[in-house]
Write a protein that binds this DNA or RNA. Structure first.
Length: 829
RNA sequence: GCGAGAGUGGCGGAAUUGGCAGACGCACUAGACUUAGGAUCUAGCGGGUAACCGUGGGGGUUCGAAUCCCCCCUCUCGCACCA
C-alpha cells in the first residue's frame, strides 16, 4: 500500500483480477433471482464520449449494487455496428466499413474496460456480424410470410446527404435526424413493417409501463395518436354511385358541414374538375402546392389555400349539396385524405371558409354564451349541445357522436371508425453497410423470400467504395444476379438493406443466448432473462428505438420466439452532458475526452463525478474543477486510511457492541448513512445525494483528532465507519474501494460482499433537538428527551431565553407541536 | 398554438410526508505549512450595519409554504394543420 493515491495502478490491477476471475459472468443455472440490467448499446463511432461515460456509469452502479443485493445480474454490452458513418468513412479514406467498424469496436471495448464497467464480456455481440444479422433476415422472412413485411410504392422521406430513405420517426422538424439535412419527398418502392397492426396494443400497453417516465409514455401515446370517430360517405351530386369518404372525430357536427375538402394528393383531386371550367385553376393550384411543399420548411405558417373543383356532393344528413374543394391543409396520409368542412366548429375550416366565403352553420350550442354565425371570430371547437341538427337536436355532443354513428351504420352512410397517426415503419435503406433484405425478384414467381437454409444473405465484402451511383450493392453483378429458388429461372436480388433500427429492436433478447447458432434465440434462456428489469439510455430514443423495440417484442412473441409482451419493465432516461450551456459536440468544440480523464485522474474519478454532479435524469453540466473535487475526495479517503492504517487494523470489532454514550452519535450517523444510500439506490437512483451522504460521514470521521483516535473504542467505531464507507462506495468507484478493502486486511473480495443493512435500533436517539418558532419564525432550539411529553416541551420552549425575548409581554394564542420536530408559539394579534 | 418538464446562493445541486431553506461539492476570501504551489490543512462563505429580507412574479389556503391552490412570466424538450 502506498502513501499516494495512484489510480492507474490500482485500476489496472483490479480490472485484471475481475477479468481473470470472470467476476461478472452471468449464467442461467443460478438459484438467485435474476436481474437483467441493460444500457443502450453504443454505435462504434471511434471513441467513447462523456454521454457513454455517464450512461454506463449509472448502469454499472446499479449492476454492482444488485449483485451485492443477491441478484443474478445480467449486464451485457455490444455494438450497434451497422450504419452510415462507417460507409462515409470508407468513401472518405478508402477503408472498408468493416475494417473501420471493427477497429473502432476494439478501441472502444478497451476504453470501456478501462472504465471498469462490470460487463459479462462473454456475451458481447456486434450487429454487423453475419451470425447476428442472419437471424434478423429470418425474422424478416417470417414477417413477410405473415404479411407484416410488405413492399409498396410510396412517397418517402429522402435525405440527399445520406443518400437514403428515412422513416417518419427519423425526420425531426423536416430535417434528417442524423445529419440535419433537409428532407425531401421521393416516390420509391419500399419495404415496410406493418407496425400499424400493433398500434392499438402498443398504445394500450403503455398503461402497463409504470416503470417508464411519464414524458416518454406521453410521447409514445401522441406518436401513435389514436382517434375515435367515424367515416362518412358523401355521395357526389353528378354521380350518386360515387362518394367521397371522410374521417371525423366530430360526427356530432355533421349538420354544420357546409363544404368538403380533399388533399392535393387525393386520387379525385384532378378527376373531379376534368372537363369543367375549374380544371385550369385546379391544375395551377396543384402545381403550386407541389412547389411550395418542397421549398419550405415551416409548414405551420402556411396560409390556408385551396381551389374549388367545380363538383358538389351531398351532405347525407342535411341533403344539401356542398362544394368540394382541394385544400393545402388536408393531409393525404391521414384518415381518408378528405375532411368535411365544418367552419363553425373547426378552426381550420373556419379560416378556410372566411377566405373562400363559405357558409358558417352553427350546430353546437355553447353552455355559457350565444354563438352567432355572422359574429364569431373563431370556431367554437368545444363540445356542447346539438342544435339545428334535425332529430338529433338537443343531444349532448357525447350522445350525438354515438347516435350519429349508429345512424350512419343503419343507413349505410358510413361507420364508427378508429384512426391512428402512426404510419408503417419504412425499413428500406439504399445503402451498403446494413443487413441485406433477403428477397429475390423473379419474373415468374415475383417476390420470393430467400429459403431459410440459404441464410444468411451475406453482405459482399469485396466492393469498391466510390461514393457514386447510389447504392453500391446494385452495382455488384455477382450479388444481384441469382437464380430463383422456386423455379430456377433468372432472378435478381433485393439490393436495399435494412434500417439499423431493426438490429437494435431485438439485441436485448439476443444477449440471453448470444452463442445460439441454430436459432435466433434459445427460448428457455430468453424466457429466463427477459424482460429487461432496468433499461437506461438517452431520451432521444423516446419514439424511435423504444417504440420499434416494443413492436418487435410483440411480433417475436406472436411468432413464438419469446414470451413477454413488453421488453423493458423500467426505463431510466438519463440527461445530456452539457458544457458551457450546450450539448457536448465536436462542432461546438466543447467536448471533454473521457480518455484524458482516465489518464489523468483515473476511471473512478470520472465515474464519481459523472454520478455526483447531477441526478441521472437531469442534464449534467460538465465542470473540470468539479472533477478535481471528486478526485480530491478519493485522495483524502485514501490518505486517511493510509495514515491510520495500523490503528484501524488493530482496532477492535465493535459492530455488535453497544457503544458508550459519547459514541452513540457516531454509530447513528453511520447507520443513517447506510439507510440514506440504500434508499437512494433503491427508490430513485439519486446517486448524487447518496454520494453526498457518504462524504458527510467521511467528514465526521476524518475530523477526529489524534487524541480521540487513541481511544480503542473510538478507533473501533472509526474502523467500522470507514469500512462501511468503502463498501457503500464500491458500486460507484469499484477499483479504489476494492483496494482499500484489501488494504484494511480483508481477504474476501469486496465484489462478493453483501450490501450492508442498517440497524433500526442504532438510528434511535435519546435526545433530540426541537426547533422553536414564534409565529412561524425560527427563534431558538431546545434539546429534550425523545420521550418528553408535550407539556414539558412547551414549558422548555417558553423558557428558552431567545424565545422569551420575543414573547415577553405578549399574549399567547396557542402552541402547535410537531412531535420530535418543532414547537410553534402563536401570539394573538 | 398544443403537450410535458423545470425555475432555489457566484455555479452544479440538497431539502423523500407542508415543519431549521441552501446538505454535499465547486468557485471565492482569510490564515497555516512551504523554496514554491494548480498540493495539503484550518476558518469563513445567500443579501443586509441592523431590525429584517430571501426559493421566477403576484395573490390565496395554513400556526407554518421551495413544497398545496389560482393567475402571470421565463426557459428546456416533444408535437406541430392528425380532421
Amino acid at each position: 500500500m502506498q502513501d499516494r493515491y495512484n489510480p492507474q495502478e490500482i485500476e489496472s490491477k483490479w480490472q485484471e483480477i475481475w477479468e481473470n476471475k470472470q467476476s461478472f459472468r452471468a449464467t442461467e443455472d443460478d438459484p438467485r433471482p435474476k436481474y437483467y440490467l441493460l444500457e443502450m448499446f453504443p454505435y462504434p463511432s471511434g471513441q467513447i464520449h462523456m454521454g457513454h461515460v455517464r450512461n454506463y456509469s449509472i448502469g454499472d452502479v446499479i449492476a454492482r449494487y444488485k449483485r451485492m443485493r443477491g441478484f443474478n445480474v445480467l449486464h451485457p454490452m455490444g455494438w450497434d455496428a451497422f450504419g452510415l458513418p462507417a460507409e462515409n468513412a470508407a468513401i472518405e479514406r478508402g477503408d472498408h466499413p468493416a475494417k473501420w467498424t471493427l477497429e473502432n469496436i476494439s478501441y472502444m471495448r478497451q476504453q470501456l474496460k478501462k472504465m471498469g464497467f462490470s460487463y459479462d464480456w462473454g456475451r458481447e455481440l456486434a450487429t454487423c456480424d453475419e451470425n447476428y444479422y442472419r437471424w434478423e433476415q429470418l425474422f424478416f422472412i417470417e414477417m413477410f410470410k405473415r404479411g407484416l413485411a410488405y413492399k409498396k410504392l410510396s412517397t418517402v422521406n429522402w435525405c440527399d446527404s445520406c443518400d437514403t430513405v428515412l422513416a417518419n420517426e427519423q425526420v425531426i422538424e423536416e430535417l434528417c435526424w442524423r445529419c440535419d439535412q433537409e428532407v425531401r419527398e421521393k416516390k420509391l418502392e419500399q419495404w415496410f413493417f406493418r407496425i400499424t397492426d400493433y398500434a392499438d396494443e402498443l398504445l394500450r400497453d403503455c398503461d402497463k409501463l409504470t416503470g417508464w417516465p411519464e414524458k416518454v409514455l406521453t410521447m409514445q401515446r401522441n406518436w401513435i395518436g389514436k382517434s375515435l370517430g367515424a367515416t362518412i360517405r358523401f355521395p357526389l351530386v353528378e354521380e350518386p354511385e360515387e362518394a367521397i369518404t371522410v374521417f371525423t372525430t366530430r360526427q356530432d357536427t355533421v349538420f354544420g358541414a357546409t363544404f368538403l375538402s380533399i388533399a392535393p394528393e387525393h386520387p379525385l383531386a384532378l378527376e373531379l374538375s376534368r372537363g369543367t371550367d375549374q380544371e385550369k385553376e385546379v391544375r395551377q393550384f396543384l402545381n403550386q402546392v407541389r412547389k411550395v411543399k418542397h421549398s419550405h420548411k415551416e409548414t405551420h405558417d402556411f396560409e390556408k389555400e385551396g381551389a374549388f373543383t367545380g363538383a358538389y356532393c351531398l351532405n347525407p344528413f342535411t341533403e344539401e349539396p356542398i362544394p368540394i374543394y382541394i385544400a393545402n391543409f388536408v393531409l393525404s396520409e391521414y384518415g381518408t385524405g378528405a375532411v368535411m368542412g365544418v367552419p363553425a366548429h373547426d378552426q381550420r375550416d373556419f379560416e378556410f371558409a372566411q377566405i373562400y366565403g363559405l357558409p358558417i352553420q352553427i350546430v353546437i350550442e355553447a353552455p355559457d354564451r350565444l354563438l352567432e354565425a355572422h359574429k364569431i371570430m373563431e370556431a367554437y371547437i368545444d363540445e356542447g349541445t346539438m342544435i339545428s341538427s334535425g332529430t338529433f337536436t338537443g343531444l349532448s355532443s357525447e350522445e350525438g357522436k354515438k347516435e350519429i354513428a349508429e345512424h350512419l351504420e343503419e343507413q349505410g352512410w358510413g361507420k364508427k371508425d378508429i384512426r391512428y397517426r402512426l404510419r408503417d415503419w419504412g425499413i428500406s435503406r439504399q445503402r451498403y453497410w446494413g443487413a441485406p433484405i433477403p428477397i429475390i425478384y423473379c419474373e415468374k414467381c415475383e417476390m420470393v423470400p430467400v429459403p431459410e437454409d440459404q441464410l444468411p444473405v451475406v453482405l459482399p465484402k469485396h466492393i469498391a467504395f466510390t461514393g457514386e451511383g447510389g447504392s453500391l450493392l446494385t452495382q455488384l453483378e455477382e450479388f444481384v444476379q441469382v437464380t430463383c429458388p422456386q423455379c430456377g429461372g433468372p432472378a435478381t436480388r433485393e439490393t436495399d438493406t435494412m434500417d439499423t433500427f431493426v438490429e437494435s429492436s431485438w439485441y436485448f433478447a439476443r444477449y440471453a443466448s448470444p452463442d445460439e447458432n441454430r436459432a435466433p434465440l434459445d427460448k428457455k434462456r430468453v424466457d429466463y432473462w427477459l424482460p429487461v428489469d432496468q433499461y437506461i439510455g438517452g431520451v432521444e430514443h423516446a419514439v424511435l428505438h423504444l417504440l420499434y423495440a416494443r413492436f418487435f417484442t410483440k411480433v417475436l412473441r406472436d411468432m413464438g420466439w419469446l414470451s413477454v409482451d413488453e421488453p423493458f419493465v423500467n426505463l431510466l432516461t438519463q440527461g445530456m452532458v452539457i458544457k458551457d450551456g450546450a450539448k457536448m459536440s465536436k462542432s461546438k468544440g466543447n467536448v471533454v475526452d473521457p480518455q484524458f480523464l482516465i489518464d489523468r485522474f483515473g476511471a473512478d474519478t470520472a465515474r464519481l463525478f459523472a454520478l455526483f454532479a447531477a441526478p441521472p435524469e437531469k442534464d449534467l453540466e460538465w465542470n473540470d474543477q468539479g472533477v478535481q473535487g471528486s478526485h480530491r475526495f478519493l485522495s483524502r479517503l485514501w490518505r486517511f486510511v493510509y495514515q491510520n492504517r495500523d490503528r484501524l487494523m488493530q482496532a477492535p470489532s465493535v459492530a455488535t457492541q453497544e457503544p458508550s454514550a459519547e459514541l452513540k452519535d457516531m454509530r447513528r450517523q453511520i447507520h443513517r448513512t447506510i439507510k440514506k444510500v440504500t434508499e437512494d439506490m433503491e427508490v430513485r437512483f439519486h446517486f448524487n445525494t447518496g454520494i453526498a451522504a457518504i462524504m458527510e460521514l467521511f467528514n465526521v470521521l476524518s475530523a477526529l483528532d489524534e487524541k480521540a483516535m487513541a481511544k480503542e473504542e473510538v478507533a473501533g467505531w472509526t474502523k467500522y465507519g470507514v469500512e462501511r464507507i468503502v463498501i457503500l462506495l464500491y458500486p460507484f468507484v469499484p477499483h479504489v474501494a476494492s483496494q482499500l478493502w484489501e488494504d484494511l486486511g480483508h481477504k474476501e473480495a469486496l465484489d462478493k460482499l453483501s450490501w450492508p443493512e442498517y440497524d433500526v435500533g442504532a438510528l434511535e436517539e435519546e435526545t433530540t433537538i426541537i426547533v422553536v418558532q414564534v409565529n412561524g419564525k425560527l427563534r431558538g432550539r431546545i434539546s429534550v428527551a425523545v420521550d418528553a411529553i408535550e407539556e414539558f416541551i412547551e414549558k422548555e420552549a417558553l423558557a428558552e431565553p431567545k424565545v422569551r425575548s420575543f414573547i415577553e409581554g405578549k399574549k399567547i394564542d396557542r402552541v402547535v407541536q410537531v412531535p420530535r420536530r418543532l414547537v410553534n408559539i402563536v401570539l394573538s394579534r
